[in-house]
């Protein structure tokens, strides 16, 4: 008997594999719910479709464009009045935040 066989035989004779004894059942009780990939994808697609539907149905694009125009007009007006230029930081901050969030989609 060579050394490999000697060690293998010794280990196989002296080490016994544990019986299941309800172990698998215990494991299955502890595993959380699993969402398959296709369900997660389907959910995402449905959510995006619903969002697009709402967006176009209520013509949100025009509303957003109008709001941007109003904002620009307000900024232009603020330059000629006594309003603090520091107030410009608010829309600037909002725009910067929006631009930062857009990075997620790239």
């Amino acid at each position: 008997m060579n050394n490999d066989e000697l060690i293998r035989k010794f280990l196989q004779e002296n080490v016994t594999q544990p019986d299941d004894n309800g172990f698998s059942e215990r494991v299955m009780r502890h595993i959380p719910r699993y969402t398959p990939v296709w369900i997660a994808l389907l959910k995402a697609v449905l959510l995006v479709a619903a969002a697009l539907l709402v967006f176009f149905y209520f013509d949100l694009w025009t509303i957003i464009c109008n709001k941007i125009v109003e904002l620009i007009q307000w900024i232009a007006y603020a330059k000629h009045t006594s309003l603090s230029p520091l107030l410009l930081l608010i829309p600037a901050g909002l725009l910067a935040y929006g631009a930062d969030r857009l990075k997620v989609f790239r």
């Binding site: 594999q17 544990p18 019986d19 299941d20 172990f23 698998s24 494991v27």
Partner: peptide, 8 residues
């Protein structure tokens, strides 16, 4: 299938 060898 794998519990015995993993526990061992």
């Amino acid at each position: 299938r794998h519990q015995a060898s993993l526990r061992q």
